[in-house]
Write a protein that binds this DNA or RNA. Sequence first.
RNA 1: GCGCCCGUAGCUCAGUCGGAUAGAGCAUCGGAUUCCUAAUCCGGGGGCCACAGGUUCGAAUCCUGUCGGGCGCACCA
Length: 581
Amino acid sequence: MSENKTLYAAYAEKIDAVLSALEAEGALPPDTNRANVSVEPPRDPSHGDLATNAAMVLAKQAKSNPRALAEKIVEHLDRDPTVTSAEIAGPGFINLRLSPSVWLDEVAAIAATGDDYGKSTAGAGTRVNIEYVSANPTGPMHMGHCRGAVVGDALASLLEHAGHEVIREYYVNDAGGQVDTLARSAHLRYREALGEDIGDIPEGMYPGEYLVPVGKAAADEFGQRFVNEPEHEWLPIFRAYAVERMMDMIKSDLAQLGIKHDVFSSEAALQAAQKPEAAEAWMREHDLVYDGVLEQPKGKMVDDWEPVELPLFRSTKFGDDQDRPIRKSDGKWTYFGADLAYHMQKAENADALIDIWGADHAGTVKRIKAAVAALSEGQGKTIPFDVKLVQMVQLLRGGEPVKMSKRSGNFVTIADMVYEVGKDVVRFTMLTRKPEAQMDFDFAKVVEASKDNPVFYVQYAHARICSILRKAKDAGLAPSSDQLSLLGEDEFTLVKQAAQFPREVEAAARAREPHRIAFYLYDLAAAFHAYWNLGNDDAEKRIIVAQEPDLSAARLFLSQQIGQVIRNGLGILGVEAVEEL
RNA sequence: GCGCCCGUAGCUCAGUCGGAUAGAGCAUCGGAUUCCUAAUCCGGGGGCCACAGGUUCGAAUCCUGUCGGGCGCACCA
C-alpha cells in the first residue's frame, strides 16, 4: 500500500480502472463522466466494507439499467484477490467485502506511520492564512470569544494535517475609538493607584477590575508624571501601554486554551505603514474606489443622518447591497478601510485566506469578500477566501441567561472556565457541534456534568489502552505484529473504524469542519470500549489471555494502534491524550 | 423592510460533494462487575427530519415559498 493514500482512495482507483476497462470493452461509452461516482463505506456495516454507486450513476450514460451495468462491474471486481465478495444490492449499489489481509495491512500501516497516520498531502503546496480570535485588546477573553478561538485553532491544525502550510494570525484592533476608551480607563486606574479617590467609574469607561493592576503598573513606571498633564500628552502613551498589557493578558488566556498564534498584526502599525493609503491608491487605479454619497439607511431611522461625500468601495459590483466607505468624514480610516488593506497584506504571503468571525459580524462578510474578490480580479489571480461564521454562544448559569457586557465588567472569562472544568472539556465541548449552529453553554451544567463530558469517554479509551499495555508489560507480554493473522472479526470491526481516520481528516479538512474529528473519535472510542467489554462476557475475548501469548501479543499490538489513532485525532483537536484517568 | 445562520427523539446534538431501514449522548425502563479501570458495555421505549411545493432512479441533505428562533443592517468595532 502506498503511503499518503487512504485505503478508500486506493479502492476508488481500482473501481476507476474497472470503468476504464469497461470503456475499452464498449460496455461504457468513451469519456464517461464519472464525477458523481463515489466509493465509501456504507452507513450500515452489514452491507459490506465498501460501496459504490457507479452503476446507478452511469446507467443512463451507458444506456443500460443499473443492475445490468453493475453485473459487468462486479465481474471485474471479482478478479481482485483482496475482494472477497462483490454483491449488487438495492437499486444498484455494489457492495464489496475485503479480505482480512487488507485490514491486517492497515494495522501495520498505522504502526509504520505512527504520529503521521492520518496526515495527508492533499493540501501540499498551498499556504493558508487563518485569522481567528482577533478579540479587541480592551479586556480579558470571555466565553464569547472562546468558540471562535477553539474552532479556529482546531481548523488550523486540521489543515496542517491535510498537508497545508498554515499561518495562524491574530489581528489586533488597536487603532479604533475603543482603545482610546481603554487608555482613559487605564489612566483613571493609574490615578487611583496613586491614592486619588476616583469614585464610581464614569459611564463610557471600562469598569473592569482587570484594569486595576494596569493602573498600578503604570503608577510604578510613570510615577506622578501624567497625573495633571492634558489628555493629548498621555493618551498615546497610555494607549500603547494598556494595549500591550491587554495583549499579554489575552495571550495568557489563549495559552490556557492551548492556543498560540504565529503572527499578531497590529491595525495601528498597518496604518502607520500607510498600507490603507496604498490600498486606496490601488483601488482607485482599478476604479474600485470612488467618491460618492451613501444612501440613507432603510428600515431603521438614523436621527442625525445627513448626506456626505466619502470614498466608497464598489462592493455592489461583487454582490454587496451597498458600496462601503473606506474613510470617515474626518478622513480617518473606517474599520473596513483598514481591514481591506489588511487582507491585501495577508494575501501577499498566502495562497488562501480564512477568517473566523463571530456571527455578530455577519453583516460585514459581503463587503470583505467583495474586497478580496476585487483584489483577485485586479491582480489576475484567484485568492480563495472563506469567512467562517461562528454562531453565538448563549451563556447560561443554572438555566438563567448570563448577561455579558464588557461595559459592565460582568462576564465569564476563559480563565474562569478553564479553572472550573479544564482546557480539554472546554475545547471538546466547543468542538462537538457544528460552528454555524447556535449553542447554549450552561456554566453550572458543564461544571456539574463535566464527568459525563464526551471528552472523558474518548480519553478513557486511550487511558484504558495505556493501562492494558502497562499491565501486559508487568506480565512479560509485549505487543507484536508477528502473528496478526490470529486476529478475527471482532478485531476487524475495530480496524475498519480506525482505517476511516485518514479519510475523515481529508473530508473534514476539505469541508473545513474540525468538529467531524471530535465525532469520529467518539465513535472510535465507542468501538474500543465495546471490544474491551467483550472480555467481560467471554474470558477468551480478553485482550490478555494468559494461555495464548501470541494472540495476546497481536491484540495488544492492535490496541496500541487504536491508541495511536486516538492520540493523533486528539492532537488535531488540541486535547490531551491522557494515560490514566 | 433587507441580509446571513439555524429548525432532526422530552433535552443537547451528529448525519459523508444527494444513497439503502434517519443515529448518538442525556433522561427513562431492563440487564452485565469473583475477571485487563463499570468514567465501561448490552438491550427496550421514544421521529410528519418545522410546513408546502419542485428537481430525480433516489431528498433530512439541492431549489422556491411559508412559518418559527438567533444575529446583523451608522462614517461603530
